[in-house]
């Protein structure tokens, strides 16, 4: 009898065993995301979170503790997409879609039978989106990463080419994924701390970032950003957006 926490916990455990990823790395994602949520303000979880509080939170499905798991929320979100020439006449700054792609893991019917538990659909879609967009990981100023669990953020950062496979844990440390860091992520608080509106709020947040409307959570001079989303258990969608000149 499995729910997503148990299924993803096994993949997270495998990553820990193979590459030395630790609960400290998971905690960093949770703590930084919470910090961003508080800056956003329009969030469910609005109290600061420390690494110690993360480590002391109750175990759900080892290695996932309570604060490794996203929220269950009711909510709604909508996105309006228009032709670029039409959008230029609208009042908001124009944000263009540079590249989009989706990919499905092998054996999408069963996570357990996938040849590699850690090959999410994003393995297939990320290269296609980068190619369509004509940009690479080095060009990304801000990233909104589907964060059903802290671990899935770490693994997607690897798949997206921000670091190598196995290096996602150390990558998130030392302020790198926070505001002011090399790659600020989930600047709205994500599924972990803002609310779980099935990832659509990630798209909205990236749009706000590129319009420079993100308030206290604004990434300075954000020009190009990416957002990832999931469908069923690891389907990987990705969009790369750019602020138009």
């Amino acid at each position: 009898m499995f729910a997503p926490a148990q299924l993803y916990a096994q993949g997270a455990r495998r990553h820990m065993e193979l590459y030395g990823t630790t609960a400290r790395h998971f905690a960093e994602v949770a703590v930084v995301t919470r910090r961003h949520a508080i800056l956003n303000g329009n969030v469910v979880m609005n109290k600061p979170l420390t690494v110690e509080e993360h480590h002391a939170s109750r175990m759900i499905s080892d290695p996932f503790r309570l604060f490794d798991c996203s929220l269950e929320s009711d909510g709604g979100a909508a996105i309006v997409i228009s032709r670029a020439e039409r959008a230029r006449d609208l009042k908001n700054p124009l944000v263009t879609i540079l590249g989009v792609a989706e990919g499905h893991p092998e054996s999408p019917a069963s996570i357990a039978q996938r040849p590699d538990l850690l090959e999410f659909g994003l393995v297939k879609s990320a290269p296609r989106a980068y190619e369509m967009a004509g940009v690479g990981p080095k060009d990304i100023d801000v990233a909104e990463i589907y964060d059903c669990f802290t671990f899935t953020v770490i693994r997607q950062l690897e798949i997206l080419g921000f670091c190598k496979t196995g290096e996602g844990g150390p990558f998130v440390m030392d302020g790198r994924i926070g505001l002011g860091g090399a790659l600020p992520i989930n600047t709205h608080g994500g599924l972990l701390s803002q609310g779980h509106v099935v990832g659509l709020n990630h798209v909205i947040e990236l749009t706000r970032q590129l319009r420079r409307e993100a308030g206290k959570a604004q990434v300075k001079d954000a020009e190009v950003g990416l957002v990832t989303g999931y469908g069923d258990m690891g389907d990987g969608s990705i969009a790369i957006l750019r602020r138009a000149a």
């Binding site: 499995f2 096994q10 495998r14 065993e17 499905s61 080892d62 538990l117």
Partner: peptide
């Protein structure tokens, strides 16, 4: 063994007594 998890919060309440 390929991977494992230790269930502390059972998906179904029947398994609560057996956890973890």
């Amino acid at each position: 063994i390929h991977a494992w998890t230790v269930c502390h919060h059972p998906f179904n309440f029947f398994f609560k007594a057996a956890a973890p």
